[in-house]
Design a protein around this nucleic acid. Structure first.
Length: 312
DNA sequence: CGTTTTTGACCTGCGC
DNA sequence: GCGCAGGTCAAAAACG
């Protein structure tokens, strides 16, 4: 028995990195109606539609702010790197063992590419010790997910369907690394590598390569990645969060997110903290916003009903 | 029976 | 050129 009222409120909790949006968030939360089951009525639905539209506008604003701040930070970082070119090489040196291979080059290069707004101009144009063209690869992002230590699976729920095609034990980590391809679209070039952190085996490190050429599908119990808000969970992972000790590249900015996995545990929503490289945030935001809207069939049905009701 | 996972073999690129 | 290590393939097994 489902309530007749369609809950169209979005559980976005967006606010990981911009603290200036408290007012906006308050306004946003103020709009959330404690819904009670009521009968459908065209007026109610129209009102609901208006409310959702307003919500959508606010979300757009929030996204715009986020993007502006992202580009601002990006700009600052690039300036900083340009002024201190040694940082670039130092960062690479601190994160790679003497015999790091192409993968590390990809990671670092991709982070830089991603951080420069996905422009194909490599991080260092001239006089780079490495040949930039060798490091230009599809967009790479890294996600760290804290999981139950007793859970041995190398599964990172991110809303997409993956097919495992290989597993390998790497030299610098006793835990095996699993290789996944996107199985939703055969032509989808995205690959994912998942490996437990050598230092903290409760942390899964997922490396995504490439971008999906299709929309997120909604069949699997996708994890709902939502950006943690400042006041949502008082003891959330800020500062001394569970993954703060996770190794991150010195020059690769990371933002702590929370991964909601409603399908796990069952009793209470498990919150697995994750760190995600900044270049992936924008894409994830867009995906999650769209997914949140389209995931609920009740919402789409009610929306269609409201529109048709208005048209008639 | 179709799909997914496992796993050993093979391929490829890099450092020496 | 050789060896090593990461990445991929593909047949068999497992699973629903």
């Amino acid at each position: 028995m489902e309530p007749a009222w369609v809950d169209t409120t979005l559980d976005l909790n967006i606010n990981p990195c911009f603290r200036t949006n408290k007012a906006m968030k308050r306004e946003f939360e103020g709009d959330v109606v404690e819904s009670a089951p009521v009968k459908y009525g065209s007026g109610v639905l129209v009102e609901e539609l208006n409310r959702v539209s307003a919500e959508n506008k606010k979300l757009t604003k929030m996204l715009t702010v986020l993007c502006e701040q992202y580009y601002s930070l990006q700009h600052q970082f690039m300036e900083f790197v340009n002024k201190n070119p040694e940082i670039e090489t130092a960062a690479a040196a601190t994160t790679s063992s003497p015999k790091k291979r192409k993968a590390e080059c990809e990671d670092y290069g991709a982070n830089m590419i991603g951080f420069s707004g996905n422009t194909e101009t490599s991080s260092s144009d001239d006089g780079s010790p490495k040949t930039p063209k060798d490091c230009i690869k599809p967009k790479v992002s890294r996600v760290q997910v804290r999981t139950n230590p007793s859970d041995n699976s190398l599964i990172v729920r991110d809303g997409y369907q993956w097919r495992k095609y290989g597993q390998k034990v790497t030299r610098d980590n006793p835990c095996p690394r699993a290789y996944f391809k996107c199985s939703f679209a055969p032509s989808c070039p995205v690959k994912k590598k998942v490996q437990r952190s050598a230092e903290d085996q409760s942390i899964l490190v997922a490396t995504y390569e490439g971008e999906h050429n299709h929309h997120e599908h909604h069949h699997s119990p996708a994890a709902e990645i939502s950006l943690s808000s400042n006041n949502n969970t008082p003891s959330s992972n800020t500062g001394s969060g569970p993954v703060s000790s996770a190794p991150t590249k010195a020059s690769a900015p990371t933002v702590t997110l929370e991964l909601l996995q409603p399908g796990l545990g069952g009793d209470e929503t498990e919150r697995a903290a994750l760190q995600i490289d900044a270049p992936a945030i924008q894409q994830i935001l867009v995906h999650q916003m769209a997914a949140s809207l389209s995931r609920d069939p009740n919402f789409t049905a009610a929306l269609a009903a409201a529109i048709s009701g208005r048209a008639v």
